[in-house]
Amino acid sequence: MSKPKIYINEEINEKVPQKIISYMTKTTKKISEDDNIKAIFGSTFGGQAIANVIFLADKLIYYPPGFSKTKILNYSDVIEATSKGKNKLDYVILKLKSDNTIKIDITTDHEEILKVLNYMSVNGIVSISENDKIQITQISNHKEDISTEKKINGEKKENIENNLDYHGKDKEDNENTKDKRSGFFASMKQKHALKKAEKEAKRAKEEAEALERKRVRNNMLATLREGNNMPRLDASSKINLQKNEECYYGCMAKRLVTKIETVGRTAGYKGVSIRITKGITYHTGGSRSHAIKDNVIHEYPGALFLTTKRVIFVSQAPGKSFTITFQKLLSTVNYKDGIGFKLESRDYTVTMDDPELLGSVLTGALKNFIK
């Protein structure tokens, strides 16, 4: 069976064979050729064009493999649509007002299923999960990256072609006025110019891609700091969540604990006795060694979680886990490799790979908590 393909609105008449609609009308008896079809999720099976999901004006029709248990759902009965899968989006779950769910088994490419979810969200059919919104935004940004890359490559290619044309003419002139040796050097000059132009094009492309990645990341962090499009993490197996509490973010981290410890000792020495005369001896004083103490930093690995109400650090080291409620958090200190939490009675410091992302999620979580 070929991978399904989405056709939306105006694409239907141009791209979807009429035999898909005719075949489904005759086979399932669920639709007619007069129905106002808005979108079709189409594929082929055994050389025959079929449809898996058809969106009408006020309802959708889902045809499972083999057309068993065909479902007709009014849009008003559906609350939320969510994509499911691990490495790719394998299917869609529809949550109904009746607390039931329906699995739409339409295995296909990641982008194709997101196209279905985005269509349902944009057209007001049903809301979609925050994670799917983030992935749709990422794919949109990726398309912009590809468009930018093609534009840059086109400009560089034109420059290279112009460079080649110039050096080609230069080579032709040299062949008419110089001997074979002069022609050889002209050819080397052309190759050098081409190689230089290719390096410049590659460097320009890499710089443009780096700037675009930075722009996309900065936009994402700014959105998170405002408390919008906050991610959701299923951490129920790692931490115990309170009623109406959700987990935004989690990452591997290390708690830093500073202790005053003995790091060495000063040298001690014994006194010296010198006999002056009979019955008279002079004694010099001795000294004992002393401990040298200093601050020593210990690291305790664990996992840090941010929820809608708390900061939670979980470690297997005895006594090193901690929980901070947002009400008790006075302030935070940002470091280049971590973040510090200040409370009225004590402080906590943790390090992680991406403290900037953690700080942005924490800022958004605090804003939403205050609301």
Rank of each mutant, 00 (worst) to 15 (best):
M1S: 11
N9D: 13
E10Q: 12
E11K: 07
T28D: 08
K30M: 11
K30C: 03
S32L: 04
I37E: 02
A39Y: 03
F41T: 11
S43G: 12
I54G: 10
I54W: 01
K59S: 15
G66Q: 11
G66W: 00
K71T: 09
E80L: 09
A81P: 09
N87F: 14
K97G: 13
T101N: 12
T108A: 15
L114G: 14
N118T: 12
N123D: 05
I128W: 04
I128P: 05
S129Y: 03
S140Q: 13
H142D: 06
E144S: 13
N153T: 11
G154W: 03
G154K: 11
E161T: 02
D165E: 05
G168D: 01
K180P: 05
F184N: 10
F184R: 13
F185S: 13
M188P: 01
K189N: 15
K196Q: 08
K196A: 11
K205R: 15
A208T: 06
E209Q: 14
A210T: 05
L211I: 08
E212A: 13
N219R: 10
A222P: 05
R225V: 04
R225C: 10
G227H: 02
N228D: 05
M230L: 09
A235D: 04
Y248G: 08
C251P: 06
V257I: 07
V257L: 03
V257F: 00
K259T: 13
K259E: 14
I260H: 13
V263R: 02
G264H: 01
R265I: 04
T266P: 07
K270I: 00
K270V: 06
S273W: 00
S273R: 09
I274C: 06
T284H: 03
S287W: 00
H290W: 11
K293H: 14
K293S: 14
V296A: 09
A303R: 14
L306K: 02
T308R: 01
K309F: 00
S315G: 04
A317W: 01
G319K: 03
K320V: 05
S321T: 10
L329V: 02
N334G: 00
K336L: 11
I339L: 04
K342D: 10
E344L: 09
T351R: 04
M352L: 10
D353N: 14
V361G: 08
I370H: 15
